[in-house]
């Protein structure tokens, strides 16, 4: 940490420094406004009636708070032909995200354990190839994946989406766990081997109990990515199995009927709530996950 500021009880803080300090705070405040404004507008708009939206100002607080838009967005608004609101799609996302996160995290943990602690010839090459898979633009696999899902009988289904998210999540989860397990001295594995424990016993009794921090980071990372995904959702789902992001886009960009901005905003907030909640509750781990994937590969 760098401390460039003078101590606060310095007898005479000179004038220019005071001005600088004010400038600093105004700048920080302005940027805070920039980042907060869209959220503020979303929330206030979602609480206004359509009438008030048309006549009032974008940035004004609602004169009369109404939750009608939220109710409509959750259970009444139309996506395409059906008019059941966002609710079924929200549950689709839950049904898709939870198993996909679980499976990818578990596989990543075991893979990372093998690569970090049971080194064998070629393990590094395998790791490099898996890591590489994280960085491909997914457009390059869309076409063959669409056909493969058809062959596997998973086309347009939620299990199909789970499958896709697991496959393209393994690279990152393996990376996370590998980087974590590599910091654990290999003597621990050796000691357990001498104690007579085998591959799975060592994983289960020694490594898994140590893994809570990295499990949290990985789960948050995977959850955020999969919940927020749109490309796979829009490519591999069909009416009825779409995740919430796809449904939200359909609501907002539907061209029929009157444009209900308040419903759009309520729907957007609903779609964003789970990941926002995760961010608020476990922000520290969220940041660690973000930076873990990029700062130290």
């Amino acid at each position: 940490m760098t401390d460039f500021t003078q101590s606060y009880d310095a007898p005479r803080r000179n004038y220019s420094q005071l001005v600088l300090r004010w400038l600093l705070f105004s700048l920080l405040g302005l940027f805070a406004l920039f980042y907060l404004m869209p959220l503020f507008v979303m929330v206030t708009t979602s609480l206004k009636s359509l009438e008030e939206i048309r006549t009032g100002s974008l940035v004004a607080l609602p004169r009369e708070v109404t939750f009608d838009a939220w109710r409509t967005a959750w259970s009444e608004t139309c996506t395409g032909v059906k008019c059941e609101g966002l609710k079924p799609y929200f549950w689709n996302s839950v049904l898709m995200t939870v198993p996909a996160v679980f499976i990818a995290t578990l596989l990543g943990a075991v893979n990372g354990y093998v690569i970090a602690q049971w080194r064998f010839k070629g393990a590094n090459l395998i790791f490099s190839l898996m890591l590489f898979g994280c960085f491909i633009p997914f457009q390059v696999v869309l076409l063959p994946m669409a056909r493969s899902l058809g062959i596997l009988g998973l086309a347009g289904s939620i299990p199909g989406l789970i499958f896709v998210h697991v496959i393209y999540g393994i690279g990152f989860t393996t990376l996370f766990f590998r980087n974590y397990y590599v910091t654990i001295p290999s003597e621990l594995t050796k000691a357990a081997k001498v104690d007579g424990a085998g591959f799975f016993r060592i994983f289960w009794s020694i490594f898994l109990p140590l893994s809570l921090p990295i499990v949290v980071v990985t789960v948050i990372w995977q959850f955020t990515n999969i919940w927020n995904d749109f490309l796979f959702g829009v490519s591999f789902s069909q009416a009825g199995t779409q995740p919430v992001t796809v449904a939200l886009n359909n609501i907002v960009n539907s061209t029929t009927g009157v444009k209900e901005y308040n419903v759009d905003m309520a729907a957007a907030i609903i779609a964003a709530l789970p990941t926002l909640l995760v961010y608020v509750v476990a922000g520290k781990y969220f940041i660690r996950g973000l930076t873990a994937g990029s700062v130290k590969g």
Binding site: K190, A192, V194
Partner: peptide
């Protein structure tokens, strides 16, 4: 394999299992 050699080993970093109590460390084998 190591477990069948009738040996015991003490490591430089001690290699104690961090999540287990001392008693569990000693009785794990």
């Amino acid at each position: 394999s190591p477990k069948d050699r009738d040996i015991a080993m003490v490591f430089q970093s001690y290699a104690l299992y961090p999540t287990m109590s001392v008693a569990k460390n000693i009785t794990f084998g």
